[in-house]
Design a protein around this nucleic acid. Structure first.
Length: 636
RNA sequence: GCCUCGGUGGCUUAGGGGUAUAGCGCGUCCUUGGUAAGGACGAGGUCGUGGGUUCAAAUCCCACCCGAGGCUCCA
């Protein structure tokens, strides 16, 4: 059945002429009008005849749901054959329409327009977004209505271009793959011992949401002076305070360094592109309209939502030999823009402007691509680990086409073996997107919402679209297979993950802390009295890290408390006895428990080497704020 | 776009027809300190904007703007 629902100021009709299939009607039925009505234009189709009752109840359910959303009390049931080219018999049509009318009339004021007549009608559509909706309804196969298997759910991604719409009957097959290589049905898998994966699968398949409050990182990002909403911009465009900028900068540098280690060349490409560029236009057609667009002079431009455009356009112009493969380029896109739905924007979890490391690898063939995929899979695990998001903190999703799986079963199984835990599998019968295989690492937050961090995809489409070629050993031009990789996922989302993780830890009675290399202040020195300030400065100069000094006019107790609220990993208190002995008294946050700080007496040299060994190999930057707390402004 | 909630000194907020709380922060002073908030005093607000009702509106009503959450939609 096809439904077209229009929320209207009024609808009125008048019969003109009967058709051969016209129902017999009374004169009073020959015209009708309803104010403030939801009009349901309905075409009953052949398929509805297999289960008339089911078709009616589904349609009624749809109409009721829309009516309650738009708060309509009047409903016009209007037969409209032109919505379908596969109509049911007139008899079934009338039965269904009458059935719908009857089922609705309990709760609503319902009118039905006569079936089988040519009618003149006038309608005034309200024009708000919910005022025009179309629905296709297919009744369950039998009257008993066996439920479809729970593991078959509609596709998650939105597919909007005309070409793809035709394939929208496609299904996702959900499974859980265990490290032993067994593919379980996701619906019946026992998640005992893998509760986090259970939450993730639940989130992915059923889209269940039980969220009624802001996630905990929102308060933390503000209290720690990392980031904040910026009312002067569009939603999802944040401001970052010095501490947040420092953290982002370190994360960005780290991911770039790791990319460089695997041979990626860092490049920079524009953030806006011509919407009518022939190649880009085709690409845009395959994506939902989630980009910002801007008009400049007479041109329509859009803001990039990834670095693909710039890098592919660059690849197109390059001369590439098979000897250069795999050829890797990386860009830290500050920013990538996506005009996400308003309700999806919360804190740092999902933004409209975000920093995305985007690496692309051109590979000679599928074999090389698969080998690279595996390397990058491992790289992503290691990158997240160093950032502070461990294997236990995320869940793996692997998505592919059935063909790809059948040809590469061992390879896929190995991916599950590598992480040594069950992973979520989404499989499609045919390929809809540009990739045949992808994985993501998904962080599940304190409110059981999942969001993707690292990802790698094998792209078999864009080399063709962008006309990217390499010359093989025979001198012939070939299309490479392209890998898309974001080793960490969005930088802001990594911060979100860390904050959510620590919030969960605090909830369970732990002491929240950031990884030392990311802590805006690594050591805070607190002099007991003014006369100890000189010694405090001397100590700070012996430490080769981000060390600040709380020289404000406050009590020691209060300064300690504030250092704790800022999650400072090492708090050093110096007074007479330390000056005397030349030592420092260090509170080590990472080894403390609530109300039970771990305090250790050591020399500045010992503290320095302890810290150096902990942050070895990670990027370093100096303080992003004044060393002396007395001259620091407050941001909040 | 729709629904819900909200907008009161820099921040968080109480109140609610008679121009207004409190805490933090900020400033000055006292205190020169030993591990989760020392004390006193002070400055700072036309209560989001515009209209309406009223002798009187921050408070009630209407419209609008902005924010948060939810819903929904999108070639």
């Amino acid at each position: 059945m096809q439904l077209l629902l229009i929320h209207s100021d009024y609808i009125e009709y008048e019969v003109k002429k009967s058709t051969p299939v016209a129902e017999k009607i009374e004169d009073s039925f020959k015209q009708g009008r309803l104010e403030e009505a939801l009009t349901a234009f309905i075409a009953v189709e052949k398929i509805d005849e297999s289960n008339v009752e089911g078709a009616i109840s589904k349609a009624v359910e749809e109409i009721k749901s829309v009516a309650s959303q738009v708060k309509a009390e009047n409903i016009m049931v209007y037969p409209y054959a032109h919505l379908s080219s596969d109509l049911s018999s007139p008899k079934a049509g009338v039965t269904v329409l009458k059935g719908i009318e009857e089922a609705l009339s309990g709760e609503f004021n319902v009118k039905r327009a006569p079936f089988g007549w040519y009618k003149a009608f006038k309608i005034s559509c309200k024009g708000h977004p919910l005022s025009e909706l179309s629905r296709s309804i297919v009744p369950d196969e039998s009257v008993s209505g066996s439920e479809p298997p729970a593991c078959i759910a509609p596709m998650k991604e939105e597919v909007v271009s005309e070409a793809l719409k035709a394939e929208s009957t496609a299904k996702s097959y959900w499974h859980v793959l265990t490290p032993d290589g067994t593919l379980h049905d996701a619906a019946s898998f026992d998640f005992t011992g893998h509760e986090n994966l259970g939450k993730f699968v639940d989130y992915e398949i059923s889209k269940k949401r039980a969220v009624e409050k802001a996630p905990p990182h929102v308060e933390l990002m503000r209290r720690l002076e990392i980031a904040d909403y910026e009312p002067g911009s569009d939603s999802g465009n944040m401001r970052y305070y010095p501490k947040g900028r420092l953290m982002k900068s370190l994360l960005e540098n780290y991911v770039l360094e790791e990319s460089s280690k695997v041979g990626a060349m860092e490049v920079e490409t524009p953030i806006m592109y011509d919407m009518n560029h022939p190649t880009l236009k085709k690409y845009l057609d395959r994506f939902p309209a989630r980009q910002y667009s801007i008009e400049s002079d007479k041109r329509q431009l859009f803001l990039r939502f990834a670095a693909c455009f710039g890098q592919f356009l660059m690849n197109h112009d390059m001369t590439i030999s098979y000897k250069n493969l795999p050829l890797k380029m990386v860009e830290m896109t500050r920013y990538s823009f996506r005009k996400e739905q308003r309700g999806e924007l919360v804190g740092l979890r999902r933004l409209r402007a975000f920093t995305m490391p985007d690496m692309h690898s051109l590979c000679a063939d599928m074999e090389q691509a698969i080998s690279q995929f595996e390397d990058q899979y491992n790289m992503c695990i290691s990158v997240l680990d160093k950032i502070g998001i461990k294997l236990d903190d995320f869940e793996v999703a692997i998505r592919f086409t059935r063909d790809f799986y059948n040809e590469n079963k061992d390879f896929i199984t190995n991916l599950a073996k590598t992480v040594d835990k069950p992973v979520l599998i989404e499989m499609w019968d045919t390929r809809f997107f540009y990739f045949v295989l992808k994985f993501e690492f998904n962080f599940v937050d304190a409110l059981a919402k999942a969001s993707a961090l690292s990802t790698v995809q094998i792209d078999v489409e864009n080399a063709e679209r962008y006309d990217i070629n390499y010359i093989d050993s025979n001198g012939n031009a070939n299309k490479p297979v392209i890998l898309h990789c974001s080793p960490s996922g969005a930088i802001e989302r990594c911060i979100y993950g860390l904050l959510e993780k620590e919030a969960m830890k605090a909830e369970e009675g732990g002491v929240p802390i950031l990884p030392l290399w990311l802590s805006p202040t690594q050591v805070r020195v607190i002099p007991i009295a003014d006369k100890h300030l000189e010694y405090a400065i001397k100590v700070s100069e012996q430490l080769n890290c981000r060390v600040d000094i709380d020289d404000r006019e406050d009590t020691v107790g209060k300064k300690i408390r504030e250092a704790g609220r800022e999650w400072v990993p090492y708090v050093v208190v110096v007074g007479d006895s330390e000056v005397e002995s030349g030592t420092v008294n260090v509170t080590i946050r990472a080894e403390s428990e609530p109300k039970k700080p771990l305090k250790v007496e050591m020399t500045p040299e010992e503290l320095n080497s302890k810290i150096s060994s902990e942050i070895e190999g990670m990027p370093y930057k100096g303080l992003s704020l004044a060393k002396m707390l007395s001259v620091r402004p407050k941001f909040l």
